[in-house]
Design a protein around this nucleic acid. Sequence first.
DNA 1: TTCCAGACTTGCGTTAGCGCAAACTCGGCG
DNA 2: CGCCGAGTTTGCGCTAACGCAAGTCTGGAA
Lengths: 233, 233
Amino acid sequence: MARIDRSLIAHMDVFAGLSPDDLDVILERANSSRIPKYKPVFEQEAEASRFFLLLDGTVRVVQTTKDGHQIIARYLGTGSIIGIAPAIGRTTYPASAIAAVDCVVLCWPMALWPELTARFPLFAANSYKAVGARLQETQERVIELSVAQVEQRVANAVLRLVRQIGRKSEDGLLIDFPISRQDIAEMTGTTLHTVSRLLSSWEDLGVIKSGRQKVTVTDPHRLMLISEGKKDG
Amino acid sequence: MARIDRSLIAHMDVFAGLSPDDLDVILERANSSRIPKYKPVFEQEAEASRFFLLLDGTVRVVQTTKDGHQIIARYLGTGSIIGIAPAIGRTTYPASAIAAVDCVVLCWPMALWPELTARFPLFAANSYKAVGARLQETQERVIELSVAQVEQRVANAVLRLVRQIGRKSEDGLLIDFPISRQDIAEMTGTTLHTVSRLLSSWEDLGVIKSGRQKVTVTDPHRLMLISEGKKDG
DNA sequence: TTCCAGACTTGCGTTAGCGCAAACTCGGCG
DNA sequence: CGCCGAGTTTGCGCTAACGCAAGTCTGGAA
C-alpha cells in the first residue's frame, strides 16, 4: 500500500474522524488490487479471509439460492467497505461480490478485523454504521416488495441506481455501468420479460432511453411519479 | 434497577463476556418497566430518547408506510435489545415496537448509548452483532419475497414463529401470543384472505390447528415440505 | 345471559404478471 | 464483412392471488 492517493481515501466514510496517523497504521496493513470487470471480489459461502474497501468502481452483491435463483442484494460504489462478515457474526461470506466494472480495492486479512476495530473504535463505528444503513435499505426493500406493484418497484430500482451511480449524459441521467434487464429483474423480484415490457412502455412515454445493457433516464420526475403509483401526470 | 433478577440478565446475549462489575455499572443506570399487552414500547418517527432490553415477553416491530400500509418487520423475544436507533445512524425510531403480550423491559436514556458503547466494547459488539443478525434475516426475507410463492412464504413465517417463540402444547407447537391472520399477512406481504384460505387448507390436511388469534402446528415436518414448495409428501 | 364487535371464512369475478415461445437486434469475433 | 450468440422484444394463454362482498363464529363486555 504505497502508491494509492491518500487524500481521496482519507475522505471516505469508513475513515471519518480518524487522525492521519491512525489512517497510516490502517493503510499500511492493506494491499491494493485491481478486480477486472465481471470478476468476483469474493464468493458466497467461501471462508471470509479478507475484507475490502472499494477504492474505485462498482460491485454487484449477489445471493444465489439453493434452487438456483439469483438475487441482487445491492450495488456498492466507491468508498464502500465490503466483505466484513464478522460484523454480522459470520465466518463465511453471505453473498458474492462481483465487479460491475473494472474496480480497485484495498484488502486486509480478516485476522486484522478484531485488531483494527478494537484499536480504532471510530473505524469500527463507521463500519457498523454501514451495516446499519444496509439494514435500513433492506428493510425498505421488504416493504416495497410487500406492498408495491412491479412497475413501481422497477421504477424505484432504476431511480436508486441513477441516484447512486448515475452520470449526466447528453440525453439525461445514464446508469454508469452495464446493466441488463435480467439484472433489474433480480433487483426487483420480477422477470426480465416484465422489465423489458416496462422499459419499452416508458420509452414510448419518453421517460427513458434504453439499449443493450444501458438505461438513461430522460424524465426523472415522471419516473418518480410512476414509482409512486401515479401513472399519469 | 434493584429488584430484577440478575442471573437471568447476565446470560443474555448483549451482555455476553462482560464481567459482573461491568454488568453492574450498566444495570444500575437502567430503569425497568412493565409494558402492558398492545401498548407501544416506542413509536415510529418519535425522537429516539431511550433504548431497551426486553427482559420478558414478545414485541412486534411494525413499520407504517405513508399510504397506510403496515408491515411487521419482525417479532423479538426475551433478551433482545431494541430501539438502538444510533446504531443504524438514526435519531428517530424507524419503526414502532408494540408489546404482543405483557412485557418487562429495561430502559436507558439514549444519551448513555455513546458512553456505554465506548466504555464497554463487548456490549457494543454484541449490540452490533444483533443488528448484523437482523440484516441477514431481512435479506433472507427479501429473497423469499422475490422468489417464493405466497403459500411457501406463509408456511415459512409460521415455522419461524414457532421456532422463535413456540411452546409445546398437547396438540403440537403453539405460537405463544395472540396472532391474527392479518398479522401473518403483514409478515408475508399478502392479504388476510389468502392467509385464511391457506390456514384452512392446512387444517384440512391436518398440518395445523388454528382458531381466533391462535395457531398450533401439529405436523411441522409436513409444513416444512410445504415451505419448500413440495406440496405433497 | 345476551349482545356485539372484531376475527375469521368463503365464494366469485378480475387481473397483474408469469412462463413459454418465437422473432429480432446488434456488437464483436473470426 | 458476415456470422453468432447474448441480450432483448413481444404476443399469447394461464393462473396465483387479490379485492369485494356476504356471510359465520366467538370471546368478552354489559
